Amino acid sequence: MQSRPVTVYPGRPAIDVRHGAGAPFGWWPAICVALVAAIDRVEYNLLAGALPTIQEEFGFSDSSDAVQRAGEAPATMRVQLAALLRIRTLRSVITGLSILFFGLGGLFFWMPSFYAREFGLPEAAPSARG
């Protein structure tokens, strides 16, 4: 088979590519393209299947009724927060992140005294490092 040097990746030396050989650049480009195609396909199908539920939940449709709603008063912040907190996933994420940050804060507050006890560092040294 005939081969010739080809610059495949900018800034790297050229590699010999054999024309007619299967996967001349290796399998990584094929894997990446297949992964992107699969994610794109799944995302499209998920949105198409969930769109009616999303429209029902948030009260909008494909046909624009903005002209009819133009005279309505905007929802207050309390109503908007109540609507957001009805979403179970969002409540779970807020709770989980709160626990995570509370735990990390406690850990970072405790670490300087731990380093002082275990390694003999003055307490100001580990807490001053960035």
Rank of each mutant, 00 (worst) to 15 (best):
R88N: 00
M111G: 05
C32N: 14
S98P: 07
G11M: 05
Q55P: 00
E123L: 13
D40S: 11
A21E: 12
F25H: 09
H19K: 09
F108T: 09
T53Y: 12
G106F: 11
C32S: 14
G20K: 06
P29S: 10
I99W: 14
S127I: 03
Y44E: 10
P74F: 00
L85N: 03
A124Q: 13
R91D: 03
A70T: 08
G96V: 01
V42D: 07
P13R: 14
A116T: 05
P10C: 03
T7V: 12
W110M: 07
P24I: 02
I99F: 15
G103Y: 05
S64P: 02
I39T: 12
F102H: 14
I94C: 05
E56R: 10
A50Y: 07
T95D: 13
E118W: 12
M77Y: 11
P122N: 03
P29R: 13
F60G: 00
P52A: 03
Q55K: 15
A21M: 07
A14K: 07
R12Y: 13
I31T: 08
I39E: 09
R117P: 02
W28I: 12
A48N: 07
A48R: 07
V17M: 01
Q80R: 15
M1R: 05
R78Y: 04
I39D: 07
S61N: 11
T95V: 06
A124N: 11
P74S: 05
R117T: 11
A125G: 05
A128K: 10
P112G: 02
I99Y: 14
Y44G: 03
R91P: 01
T95W: 08
R4A: 15
P74E: 05
S98G: 15
F60Q: 04
V6D: 06
S113R: 13
G106R: 11
G120H: 04
S61V: 04
A73V: 09
E72I: 07
V8D: 01
D16S: 15
G26S: 07
E118L: 14
V42L: 12
G20C: 01
Q2P: 07
Q68T: 13
G20F: 03
S92T: 08
A83L: 06
T95M: 07
T89F: 04
F102L: 15
Q2C: 13
I99L: 15
